[in-house]
């Protein structure tokens, strides 16, 4: 196991940031920690990278205990925090050189690993890190986290606030790093990125809701789920909420995702109800649950 957590808890005063977290990440796995702001993702990253002590529980990274063997872990992992944490007043090249030196290596030694990413920022290598665009900062931070060829890479919300095109490119890059044998633990608030991971943990309010492959999590959705649309979206939400057979209703793009509290629910009944409420262009179609549906159902 590359990463193993057993009953890890951490509180800040009265706030329980992590509540008895346990899961394992296998060697070479691309593992996603999926949850909203405030779920406890960053606290978990800090414990695993030995920057924060857990209140209780045990955890190992690359076979080393996060408390006893913290020095070994620091040599074996790369960490890209959610907040840009490089030296703003050093240039691109100086930052990279600095991190290589700290880890007792050189840029040349592991250049293969970062080459694909580094060539994109190389034209700006004399520019100070503080003057880079968001996307370039992110690429430089990833290069600095990789320059010592870590066994395990920790990426805390690398795609937050990043547009869908850049997000797709970033994930393509992660897949290629995974192929080079690096274990990756990545967190994201974007549920659609979950399907790009080998396995995921859904986390909210410091608790793990589920750990499995994205496919298995979607397949385990407890009830039938329907997508519903009609011409007046706002009115549709209101009317679906007051429908006596409604268990849940959430907007999903152009549709509402609807589940019923009745096991023998018939779409025709809902269509009739919506017709009585004067809706037009009514559609009620059975659909497949997404990770986001599951997340909302579990955190309800």
């Amino acid at each position: 196991m590359s990463i193993s957590l057993d009953n890890i808890s951490k509180s800040y005063g009265k706030i329980k940031a992590l509540n008895a977290i346990s899961f394992e990440v296998a060697d070479g796995e691309l593992f996603g920690l999926i949850g909203p702001d405030g779920a406890g993702k960053t606290t978990l990253f800090r414990i695993l990278t030995t920057l924060l002590l857990p209140d209780q529980g045990q955890a190992t990274v690359a076979g080393y205990d996060v408390i006893k063997d913290y020095k070994n872990i620091r040599n074996q992992v790369g960490y890209m925090p959610g907040k840009f944490s490089l030296y703003q007043d050093l240039t691109v090249a100086e930052n990279l050189n600095f991190f290589a030196t700290i880890f007792g290596t050189t840029i040349a030694e592991n250049y293969d690993l970062i080459k694909e990413i580094y060539i994109q920022i190389e034209p700006f290598k004399e520019r100070r890190a503080g003057k880079l665009s968001g996307g370039m900062k992110q690429k430089l931070a990833l290069c600095c986290a990789l320059i010592h060829k870590p066994q395990v890479l920790f990426l805390d919300e690398p795609t937050t606030g990043v547009d869908p095109v850049s997000r797709k490119e970033f994930w393509d890059m992660l897949k290629r790093l995974q192929q080079k044998g690096i274990t990756i633990l990545v967190s994201t608030p974007y549920m659609d990125e979950a399907s790009l991971c080998d396995r995921i943990a859904l986390i909210t309010n410091g608790k793990i809701l589920e750990v499995d492959t994205p496919k298995a999590i979607m397949a385990a959705y407890p009830t039938k789920i329907y997508k519903v649309s009609a011409s007046q979206t706002y009115q549709l939400i209101q009317d679906l909420k007051t429908y006596p057979e409604t268990h849940s209703v959430y907007p999903f793009g152009q549709y509402m995702h609807f589940t019923s509290n009745k096991t023998n629910f018939k779409p025709q009944d809902l269509i009739r109800y919506l017709e009585e409420k004067k809706h037009t262009d009514i559609e009620v179609i059975e659909t497949v649950a997404s990770i986001e549906d599951t997340f909302m159902e579990l955190s309800k």
Partner: peptide, 10 residues
């Protein structure tokens, strides 16, 4: 809504 949980986002 960046980073906001899915239920609150809705």
């Amino acid at each position: 809504t960046g980073g906001v949980d899915p239920i609150t986002r809705r």
